[in-house]
């Protein structure tokens, strides 16, 4: 019996591998993709990038402009995430099974979070562009609306992880709902909640660059401007500063997360 099981498992594994390879070959034939050509194309593309996007002496003159626009982008990302986090805490409390007291509201919040989360921020930016025109506020709104969806969903799960036990214990003391939430639930969940906020700030700084290209603000617009005016070395400097900033913020967020959760 165990031998039969092992033989069947091995057969399944081989069939899966053959099916995957078959799909790959069929896809390549259908797209008329030449592996060798594609591989060589990647190297040629990388060589072109390095040659054209390496910052030169003229690009360094643009550094003050770039850092200023980068700073604006970071501020917009942090502001959008922070405001969304405040709203999401309220929605999370209403939507979590452990803290949400009204059944239909719990369902409504979950649906709202799902809709907001699944509407891409690029689409938000384009829609909002018509109403609010090209400015920082449009970028802020696009990030804010998408972040609300993500954070509400994440906060609901974090608040549910706190568990009903601690809440029940405080109910047993005769405490009211809001003192239970503020004195019991939030302190228990705060590490997890802040961890999500830091993660979203990291993400939003990256996303704010793309939003900026669409809304004509921040570092995204600066990159777009340099790129379209063929000032590739300056555009390359934008990319370098962006990479350094996102890595620095990621390291800072990791450190803060450790401090907050231990």
């Amino acid at each position: 019996m165990p031998n039969l099981y092992l033989r069947q498992t091995a057969r399944r594994r081989w069939l899966t591998l053959i099916a995957a390879l078959g799909l790959l070959v069929a896809g390549q034939l259908w797209l008329q993709l030449n592996d060798r050509q594609a591989f060589m194309g990647v190297w040629a593309g990388l060589a072109w990038l390095v040659h054209n996007f390496t910052p030169d002496a003229a690009a360094w003159h643009d550094l003050p402009t770039i850092t200023y626009q980068l700073w604006r982008t970071i501020v917009i990302a942090i502001a959008a995430t922070s405001v969304a986090a405040i709203v999401a805490v309220g929605l999370g409390l209403a939507g979590a099974a452990t803290t949400g007291r009204i059944r239909w509201l719990r369902g409504g919040v979950r649906l709202f979070a799902s809709v907001m989360r699944n509407f891409p921020f690029v689409a938000w930016a384009l829609v909002l562009l018509f109403s609010f025109k090209q400015n920082d506020f449009t970028g802020f709104l696009a990030l804010f609306l998408m972040t609300i969806g993500y954070l509400t969903r994440a906060f609901i799960e974090t608040l549910e992880e706190v568990g009903g036990g601690a809440i029940e214990a405080l109910e047993a003391t005769g405490a009211r709902y809001w003192p239970i939430v503020i004195q019991g639930v939030l302190p228990a969940a705060i590490g997890g909640l802040l961890s999500w906020v830091l993660y979203m700030i990291e993400n939003n700084i990256r996303d704010a660059t793309l939003v900026g290209m669409l809304t004509g603000t921040g570092i995204g617009f600066t990159f777009d401007l340099y790129f379209k005016s063929f000032r590739y070395p300056s555009a390359g400097l934008v990319v370098v500063t962006l990479i350094i900033t996102t890595i620095a913020i990621e390291l800072l967020a990791t450190h803060l997360r450790q401090v907050l959760t231990h």
Partner: peptide, 26 residues
Amino acid sequence: NLIEELAAIDNVLHGCLGGKTWLAGI
């Protein structure tokens, strides 16, 4: 059923919450 993230003294003080006003509790 304690709030594990809080200190022992904070958890003991939670025993008072039922006797407090809404604002003092919050």
